[in-house]
Simulated scan of single mutants.
Amino acid sequence: MIHYTPLSEHDIYEDDPKSYEKQRIVSVNGKSMKVYDNDDGTVQLVQLLSTDPQDYLDQNFIPGNTFSVTDVEM
């Protein structure tokens, strides 16, 4: 895959590949999202994965929000 961009590869991809090991795709309240597993047992929203524009207006699904593991559906 070719990616044309004026940004350097370090601005697009993280330097440490191990940081990707803590990311996963889950469902919270029926919405799919990519989350990052925190050390305290919570997950932090990295990216909302939805085709519904209304989902992006919901204040509960702003990137950076944290969720309890009990809210997460696999």
Rank of each mutant, 00 (worst) to 15 (best):
V46D: 11
R24G: 12
S50Q: 04
G41F: 00
S19G: 04
S27C: 10
M1V: 09
S32N: 13
N65L: 05
V43Q: 08
L48R: 06
K18N: 13
G64H: 03
N29F: 07
F67L: 03
Q44G: 05
I12H: 05
N38P: 00
D55K: 08
N65M: 12
V43C: 04
S27G: 00
T5I: 08
Y4K: 14
V35L: 02
D55W: 06
T70E: 15
Q44M: 15
N29C: 05
Y13V: 12
D37L: 11
Q44Y: 00
N60G: 05
S68V: 02
Q44C: 09
M1P: 08
P17N: 07
D40R: 02
L45W: 08
V28L: 04
L45E: 07
I2E: 11
Q47W: 12
V46I: 15
E9Q: 12
V69S: 15
I12C: 09
T42K: 11
N38Y: 02
P6I: 09
T42V: 05
D11F: 13
F61Q: 02
N60F: 06
D15P: 04
T51H: 10
P63D: 01
P63V: 02
V69K: 14
Q59V: 08
Q59R: 13
K34A: 10
R24W: 03
F67Q: 03
G41A: 01
D52T: 08
I12V: 15
K31A: 02
K31Q: 12
E14A: 13
E14P: 02
Y56K: 03
T42E: 03
D39Y: 00
D37C: 08
Q59F: 07
Y4R: 14
T51K: 11
Y4E: 13
K34C: 11
Y20H: 11
L57F: 13
E73N: 13
S8W: 08
V43P: 00
P6V: 09
K22W: 05
Q23F: 04
V28M: 03
I62L: 10
D71A: 15
M74P: 01
T42G: 02
K22E: 09
K34G: 01
G64M: 01
G30V: 06
K34Q: 13
V46N: 07
S50A: 09
E73H: 12
N29L: 09
T66E: 15
F67E: 06
D39E: 14
G30Q: 07
V43E: 05
H10E: 15
S19H: 10
E21G: 10
S50C: 06
T5K: 07
S8N: 13
T42D: 01
M33P: 00
Y56I: 00
L45C: 03
V35G: 01
D16I: 08
K34V: 15
V26R: 05
P53C: 01
D15F: 09
